Amino acid sequence: MHHHQKGVALLVVMWACTLLAILLGGYAAMARTEGLQARYKFEQTGAHYDAQAGLMRAVYALQAANPADRWVADGRSYRFRFNGAQISVSITSETGKVDLNTASPHILTRLFRVAGEAPEQAAALAQAVVAWRSFALSSEQRRQRAEPYLAAGRSYGPRCGPFASVEELQMVLGMTPALYARIAPDLTIWSGRPRPDPATAPLLALASLPGMTLQHARRLIATRLAGQSGQPGLAVGGGVTHSIRSVAVLADGTRAVLRATIRTQGGRPGSQGFAVLRWQEGEGE
């Protein structure tokens, strides 16, 4: 009986040790996971601020006192190191993009065509964009323009006013997610021009100009960037509104992306130098 009790006691101790080992292992794994998460968050936060520094560097370079030191807002990439991170910044002038509120139907049609749409669909979609942004309409005209949307199962009709954002284009009848993803980087609502500025236009916007093809546009952009990428240069055209994309990559591969649309203030007394019109973190259109 005495030996039986000792055996039971030994078994209980062994089970207790096993349970304790399991608990300690679980706590150790949890502590390691939390430590890794904290380190990732710390590195991600550092990368975010490094990317923000790249964005601020671009704002400064757009307004450099010496024109020869200004960065060119035609989409070329400027690379430099900051705080141990590799920073890559590109700036695109909004005047080089297709303005949803002011672009002519011909430019819109050509944009949809070079993005891969068939001629009939491209023309119909251009008219749908124009119908969406048209204003000063009568109640009957608004009702008529809303009918195709309601027939397609939409709960809304055209705004009958200017686009409030580029993303709003996705609501226009006939716009597909695939087409929107292709053309979104070439669109704006801040240009105010009927056609893109060829000096700063990205590929599809440049190819939408009359007499232009995708092949010709690629050659022009290659010529524009040849031997100048990453170097200061004289800013041509450009206007005062720009989209900036700043990417920071740390030594361990941690990556942060900031995208902002800013309007420079021209050094007006009391101004902050620029105003942010749009701010996005992470990848996207």
Rank of each mutant, 00 (worst) to 15 (best):
A73T: 03
D74M: 03
R76P: 00
R76A: 09
S77M: 10
S77V: 13
S77A: 11
Y78Q: 09
Y78H: 09
Y78I: 04
R79I: 06
R79T: 13
N83T: 00
G84P: 07
G84T: 06
A85P: 07
I87E: 01
V89F: 02
T92N: 01
T92A: 05
S93H: 12
S93F: 11
T95Y: 05
K97V: 02
V98R: 07
V98Q: 02
D99V: 01
D99I: 01
D99R: 00
L100K: 06
L100C: 08
L100Y: 05
L100T: 11
A103M: 14
P105D: 05
L108C: 03
T109D: 07
L111T: 00
F112D: 12
F112V: 03
E117S: 15
E117P: 13
E117Y: 05
A118H: 15
A123W: 12
L125Y: 09
L125H: 03
A126P: 01
Q127E: 15
V129D: 04
A131M: 12
W132G: 08
W132K: 04
R133T: 01
R133A: 01
F135E: 14
F135A: 09
A136L: 15
A136P: 04
A136K: 13
S139W: 06
S139G: 10
Q141L: 03
R142I: 11
R143Y: 14
R143A: 15
Q144N: 09
Q144P: 06
Q144C: 03
R145F: 06
Y149F: 04
L150I: 15
L150R: 12
G153Q: 02
G153W: 09
G153A: 00
S155T: 15
S155W: 07
G157A: 05
G157D: 07
R159W: 14
R159G: 05
